[in-house]
Structures are given as C-alpha cells and as structure tokens.
C-alpha cells in the first residue's frame, strides 16, 4: 500500500480541497457517497462542512451504518471541524437528533470559538509534525472539552477565542488509535503536512503518539 486509496466523504462540505491535499500527500483520493465506494477505500476523511446537514444526508442515503461499521473495524479516519464532531462520542451544542460515529472518546463543543466574525487563523505546534509551526485556520470551529482513555492530545491553541477556564489552551488536535481529528482546516492551506501524517497513519507508518 505505498499509494493508499483514501476516500473523502462527499455528501457536503469542503471535499475537493481535501482530495487535493491528499493527492499532494502521496495518496490517491476518491469521493465517497455510496456504500460500494466506501468498501474500496483504505481510509476515510470526513471534511469540514455543516455537521447537521452531513448527519441528515448520512441517514437519508443509508451510509451512516456502513461508515460506522468500517470505523469500528479500525479503518483509519481523519475528521476536520465538522468531521471532528462526527468522530466524537459526545457533542455539546449540537442538535438533539444529530448523530455522530462515536469512535473517539471525547467531548466536542460545536461552534465553540464563536460565530464567523470570531473565526481566525494562527500558528500552532502539532505533535508528530516537525518543522515550522502549522498555520491553522479555524472557521466557526469546535474545541475538545474532554478526552477519554487512549486519546492523545496533539495540539492546543493558546490564543484566539476565549481560553477562559482552560489555562493550557483549548484542545484542537487529537489522535486515538487509527483516528485523527482537528478543529481547524488544514485543507484550506497549501501546507499538506497534516494530510501527510494521516496518509502515514493509513500506511501504518505513523508512530503512535504518547497518551498523557
């Protein structure tokens, strides 16, 4: 699997930018909207978008259970923003009927950094990604309020938004086994390092981070 086949869930959201970034990171990228397309992929990206709309469409097109099954079987997955929400096992400030896959034991607060006028970009360090700080773009972004057993925190943001009762900053990047999630949108920048990290996870060559 030197060139893994990675699907991007293509019901709604920033699909093409993820596909471009995955290709730049050395994978072959395909859109996934049907169970048969899902069967073919080695890993799945759940893009940024509106998690409420995505959740509706997953149910309407009978894709929720097949995706959930593959995730439970250990298929590598990367969720950005709405995708992070979809991977969490607890969502705050969501809609009561909103369903998530629940494969990362964490609590995510939707739109936690505020509305669009509060959206921001800043530089952060991400564990497992070497070199210069990563330019992270947060758009009506969620943050992680609780991580459960086996979840490694890869990145926090110390500025931007209200860090209030989180003196170490808000958690914005995590990894739990085969799943990676970020509050920010690496797909809207030309920097493909987060996607390279995920492609390495799919290849099985990205070292497991320490869980603290």
């Amino acid at each position: 699997m030197t060139v893994p086949l990675i699907g991007v869930l293509a019901l709604q959201g920033d699909v093409v930018d993820h596909m471009r970034a995955l290709e730049a990171a050395g994978a072959k990228a395909v859109p996934v909207r049907r169970a048969a397309e899902l069967d073919a992929v080695d890993g799945l990206v759940i893009p940024g978008g509106e998690s409420t709309a995505m959740s509706k469409l997953l149910e309407a097109f009978d894709l929720f259970d097949p995706v959930k099954k593959r995730l439970d079987e250990g298929m590598p997955a990367f969720g950005s923003c709405a995708g992070m929400i979809m991977l969490a096992d607890e969502v705050l400030d969501g809609r009561p009927d909103q369903r998530s896959f629940g494969v990362i034991p964490m609590t995510v607060r939707r739109n936690a950094f505020g509305r669009q006028v509060d959206s921001f970009e800043t530089e952060i360090g991400i564990e497992g990604i070497s070199g210069a700080p990563f330019r992270a773009v947060f758009i009506r972004a969620p943050w992680v309020e609780r991580v459960g057993d086996g979840v490694a925190v890869l990145g926090r943001v110390e500025n931007g938004g209200d860090s209030g009762d989180a003196p170490d900053g808000r958690i914005v990047a995590v990894r739990a086994g085969a799943c990676l999630a970020t509050s920010f949108h690496p797909e809207v920048t030309p920097d493909a390092r987060v996607h390279e990290y995920f492609v390495d996870m799919v290849r099985g060559t990205a070292a497991e981070p320490a869980v603290r």
Binding site: A10, G13, D14, V15, G48, E50, C81, I139, H185, V188
Partner: peptide, 8 residues
C-alpha cells in the same frame, strides 16, 4: 474558507 464549508 467559510464558503468552502458550505459547498455541496
């Protein structure tokens, strides 16, 4: 980027 998230 906000508009990117509305795509589709």
């Amino acid at each position: 980027g906000m508009a990117d998230m509305l795509k589709g």
